[in-house]
Each structure stands twice: as C-alpha cells, then as structure tokens.
Design a protein around this nucleic acid. Structure first.
Length: 174
DNA sequence: ACACTGATGAAT
DNA sequence: TTCATCAGTGTT
C-alpha cells in the first residue's frame, strides 16, 4: 500500500466529538450524496457553524427535546435537516455524545455558498432526517487531510439569541 | 428593502 | 386553531 490518501467513510466515533472540535475538523472533508438520477456528488466542505446544547440560545435545542430536535439528542453521526423560511432545506450533522444536543450546520461546500444552496444542490429534503452517516448508502462524509488554516467568525443571522451566544466565534470557514 | 414560503412551537 | 417567527435567497 502506498502513502497516498485512502478515501474512507467517516465512522460514528468521529461524529461523537464535541461540536466545537468536530465543526472545524469537517472542513475539507468530502460530503458525498447520491442524486435521484443515481449519480454521486462529492464536494469538499468549506463553511460550517456549530450549535451547542440547550444553553446555546441560537441552537434549536434551546427549546428542549421536541419532535423536530429529537435527533440532536441521539448522539453524533445522524443527519438533522429542517425547512427554513418555507423554502430551504438546511443540512446538519449531529455531533457529541448521546443526550447532549449538538449539530454542525453545513453552510458551504466547494463552489456552493450558502446553506440553502447546499441543500438544493445536494437534493436534501425531509427524507434525510435521521439518516446514519456512518453506514447510509445515500449520504456520508469521506475523510481528507485536515485543514489547518481556517477562519472563524460569529454565526450568521442569530441576533435573536442575544449575548453571549451572538458573539461566539462558532462559524468556521476556509 | 422586501417578497417568497410553510413548518414549528407558543399562545389562545 | 391561530399567530409570530425563522441557522435564507433572489429580486427590486
């Protein structure tokens, strides 16, 4: 076996890291989704945001465990999707240990900026809710060398959360 | 600056 | 069962 990088599906244990560790670790990794026509899309992740626990007032789980947020409590490795503004499907990866609601929002991939556009490009819809990333046949993430040079900023459009959450540098991008 | 769009959770 | 709100995008 040579020294070249073997493409491999990320395992459940990888997603079980704390969201503040996992979010930047997902930069550069390959988001892979099977299209309805059978083709496979692979895009490097370029922009993410971390949503961390019930105490984080910007996180949907701040309202507790509901039918919508229940998957965030299931432990890292599941897909969390939701429809926003009646139009755009947001793609998230659940992170952390079971019982601790956390998720990483995929805000951008190579050549596709904006979480709504990512959802559209990847044909994300309600049916992806709860998909297990480590063994799904239609959505997963493949490993790639870590990105060491990335930037951070406050999260986008969460002013309603107020301090200190609105100031957290929990947006990570290349 | 604003229309679009509908699921969601809180208030009635 | 009504109501305000929303982790956004495209057009004016």
């Amino acid at each position: 076996m040579g020294a070249f990088f073997m493409s491999a599906k990320l395992k459940q244990a990888f997603y079980r890291q704390d969201v503040l560790t996992l979010a930047p670790a997902l930069l550069g990794k390959l988001l892979c989704v099977k299209m309805t026509n059978g083709s496979l899309q692979k895009y490097a992740i370029t922009e993410v945001e971390a949503y961390r626990g019930e105490e984080d007032l910007a996180c949907h789980a701040a309202k507790g465990k509901t039918e919508r947020t229940r998957i965030m409590y299931a432990g890292g490795g599941f897909v969390y999707v939701y429809l926003i503004y009646g139009m755009h499907w947001m793609l998230n990866m659940v992170s952390g240990e079971e019982g601790v609601p956390q998720a990483v929002l995929i805000r951008g991939v190579e050549g596709v900026n904006g979480p709504g556009r990512v959802g559209k490009r990847m044909q994300i819809d309600r049916s992806f809710y709860g998909e297990a990333l480590w063994h799904s046949q239609r959505i997963w993430i493949e490993d790639a060398p870590p990105v060491v040079a990335y930037q951070t900023s406050p999260r986008i459009n969460i002013a309603y959360a107020g301090a200190p959450w609105v100031h957290k540098q929990w947006r990570f991008f290349i």
